[in-house]
Amino acid sequence: MRKTGIVLLSFLGVVLFYFTFQSAEKVFRSDWEMPEHAIEPVNQHRLILITKNLDTPFWNQVAQGAREQAQKEGVSLEVWGSYGNNQEDFLEKIEVAIYSKVDGIIVQGMNSQAFNELTKIKASFYNIPIITIANDAPIEESLRRTYVGSDQYLAGQMIAKQLLADMGSAGKVVLMSDSQQEHYQKQRLRGISDILKDYPDVQLVNAETLDSREQIIATTQDILNRVPDADAFVAVNADFTGVMVQEIGKRFQVEPFYIYSFDDGSDSLPLLEQGKLDGVIGQSPEMMGTVSVELITKWLRDESVPFDKEGVLTDIRMLKEKEAR
């Protein structure tokens, strides 16, 4: 009786001691130190990549390439930008980047007074090099150091050639482009028309629209009304692709139309996989990121010959339905 009592009491004592010490250890364990204060000054170059279309597959790849390269080069890089083509936000980001006196800005080109003013005057004032990426802005207006991205003129030509190959040398072709006439769209259009002008039976219809969703819908409907016998559509601005295909699909079967686009819109590749698009120009977004960071780093380290004014062109290729799968 007495023995069991003692055993029970000791057991109880041991249990209490165990839990108390366990608890005390948790309370007094001090591994929650504040993160180390970085004492050494930031020697690294700070780069910023700014885009209008954050979180689209195309730009994610660009950002990934840029980040990998930045890590390799030992510079710090941040990706800023606006969502869904929001230009006001986009411009603000550029302005903040300039006021923040970063060492280099890699930016998606844009054809606007405000953009040019920022890059030409403000950036120069703070002596910040600017590289355009994916979409160019003319050097005379933006004073950008160089351009890294696809040869948009060539891309337009490839589309046109593919169109001829698919459709034949006769038909009505609707070209959907931005009314703001971005530089890269102009080049794409130029490429297309340069090829097609040799084919008198191919009739080009230029449809220009503002880039809000309602406007695109309206324009597409208007075109379908005006040109009911169109054979082919080219979304010169890849962002239009999804809405355009949707609107065509509301009226006709999508399959008989020849529809082409570029891969820098978020809908292009899924639509190609579904067979709704006949061809998409594939660019090399990762390469763009990598090369742009590499170039700007080199320039910052004074290692490089002056920038190529024309730009560094990356690969493009025509993606057909079956390739995309």
Binding site: V42, S76, S100, K101, V102
Partner: peptide, 21 residues
């Protein structure tokens, strides 16, 4: 200045420069 750490190094540098600007 003492708030600088590994995570906010970049933003901190921007911040400083913004103040300078």
């Amino acid at each position: 200045l003492i708030l600088k750490n590994e995570d906010n190094e970049f933003v901190m540098a921007n911040y400083m420069n913004l103040i300078d600007s």
